[in-house]
Structures are given as structure tokens and as C-alpha cells.
Simulated assay, not measured.
Amino acid sequence: MSKKLIPFILLLVLIISACGNKTTGTSGEETKKEEDSTITYESENGPIEVPADPQRVVALTNAGYVLKLGVNLVGVDSWSMTNPRYADELKDVEVVSEDNIEKIAELQPDLIIAASTTKNIDKLGKIAPTVTYTYNKVDYLTQHLEIGKLLNKEKEAQAWIDDFKARAKAAGEAIKAKIGEDATVTVLESYDKSMYILGDSWGRGTEILYQAMGLKMPEKVKEMTEKEGYYTLSSEVLPEYVGDYLVISKYNDQDNSYQETDVYKNIPAVKNNHVLEANAYEFIFNDPISLDYQLDFFKENFLK
């Protein structure tokens, strides 16, 4: 071999080696990027790998939390579809259920959010990472923070929580200044021929009234709702549970004939025009979208 060729061959080897190292470096960066595309979320059932930036979420519960954080939904439960507050953002979203696994699979979700009571969790988990929540296991604001952690938007969730608490506190002070520090409020709902009074953490604006704004509930309501969070009663005994003010989470498509009875009409809160009627479909949930609306509703109706 000519001595003149040796330097050339050495140079060629160095070039090939450098290219190889560059390729290896690029591969390492790609691997790191791929690893960064998921995060570990500490769920009720232990750690689970979920997308760091989910693009196709199916929410069988808690849809409002996802919407508030600006994450794309491709499927939601039927109850979420009844809330007028979600209507615009859900107009192109599919209605799905825990019983229709095939339809959920067709949507190709990258994350599924469900309740701890949802059926077919194992099957859902084979479609996409599935995270479940137990209703009222944590308070309503912590629930939003947890969804924020799941969706990798914890800062956004905390910012809303801080702002909401400040707004609700100010509203509560203004309302108590008008109706009195000791005025009591009862929240009532009637659905499918059953009547309920609600505790301090059962949606329907209860979290705002009793927790965020610090308004009082009648002692009998507090006693009877303490265990389950709500209490079923008959219209005949309703006067025993109604405080100075009555908030009705009302379904206009249900039987509301109790409001035509003398028993109802003779309740002091009714006679004093201290009844606030809200659209139940807008009042069911306690997610940030619902809470923002409910807070405005209370401010407008108590302070008008």
C-alpha cells in the first residue's frame, strides 16, 4: 500500500467515526424526547404513565375540569352533554358510555378519565391510560388541582383556584352584609318523583354557598345530610328543612307540582320571596365552569 494513501484512509476513518457519533447523539436526543412525552401521575390506584400533552381525551366524568384547562375532548358522558355551559365546546364531541367499549376505542383516545364506579375499567385501560376518581374523596378545589396534575396543567389549575377563592370570599361578605350573618340557606332538588335537600359538597352550588362563601345551613339540614351528603324527604315535611332562603336546583322537564301546594306556598322563605330558582342542568356539577356560573348566579340573585 502506498504511504501516500495512509493519511487519506485515516482521515476517512475519522470522518466515519464522527458521523457515527453524531448519529448516536441524535438518537439519544430522540429517545429523551420520547421519554419526555409522558409523565407519571400519582392516581388513587397508584402511579400511572399518561401523556404529557394529551390530545384526545375521553371523559366519562369530570368533563368540565378538562374543558376549563383547554384540553381537547373527543368523548364525554351523556350527563355532561345536558349542561348548557358546556354546549359550545362539546358540539363536535361524541357521547360515549362505559358500556360501549368499541365506540370509545374508535375515538382513539390517548387518555381516559373515569369514576371509581365506572364499569369495564380493565377494558378501558387496554385502549388508553385510564385514571379514575372517587366522587368527594377530595374537596372540589383539590379535585380541580388533581385534574390539572393529570393533564400537566397544575399551574393553570392553581391560578384558577386562587382567583375563585378570592372572588367567592368577596361575594360571601357582600351577601352576608345584606341578608345577615346568621341567615340560613337550604338547597333543594326534585328529580324523578324524589325530593332531596343537599349538604355542603354535593354540587348544585352547595360548595360555593357553604364552603367558599361561608353561608349557614339550617341545623336540621346539616344533621340529616352529614352522612350521605344529601337527604331524601317528602314535600309534606319540607317546611321543617327550609331556612331563611331556599335555592331550588330545578328541572323544568320534571314534576314540580309540589310548588303549587299550600304546604310549599306557606313556607316563610316562599312567602318572603326568598326563593332562588336555578336551571338544574347548569347546577349539577362543581367543576370550574359550573362554579363560575353558579357564583355569578348567587351574586346576581342575592344582591339584586
Rank of each mutant, 00 (worst) to 15 (best):
G28H: 14
V93Y: 11
H274R: 13
S235I: 03
A52S: 11
M1R: 15
S27P: 02
E240D: 15
N152E: 04
K119A: 10
L233Q: 10
A212D: 15
K220N: 12
N256R: 03
K250W: 00
S37F: 14
I48P: 02
G205M: 11
N279I: 08
G46A: 04
Y231W: 15
T206K: 13
E236S: 11
D77P: 02
G148W: 04
T31R: 10
D110A: 06
Y133V: 01
T118W: 12
Y245Q: 09
E260A: 08
E98P: 06
L10Y: 14
E106L: 07
K153Y: 01
A170Q: 07
T82N: 15
E49I: 02
E189P: 00
K3V: 12
G199T: 09
M81W: 03
S190Q: 13
K165L: 06
K153S: 00
T206F: 12
L67F: 07
G46W: 02
I284A: 08
F8R: 13
E300L: 05
A18D: 07
K165Q: 12
K33P: 01
N120V: 00
N252D: 13
D200A: 05
L145G: 09
D122R: 02
Y258W: 05
D287Y: 11
P51S: 00
N301M: 05
K271R: 13
S190D: 05
S37P: 10
F285M: 13
A212G: 09
A278W: 00
P268R: 09
H144N: 01
Q143F: 03
L233G: 10
E154R: 01
Y231S: 14
A159Q: 13
Y251V: 01
L198G: 06
E156L: 02
T38F: 13
M195L: 12
T130M: 03
P51M: 07
E181C: 05
E94R: 06
E146M: 04
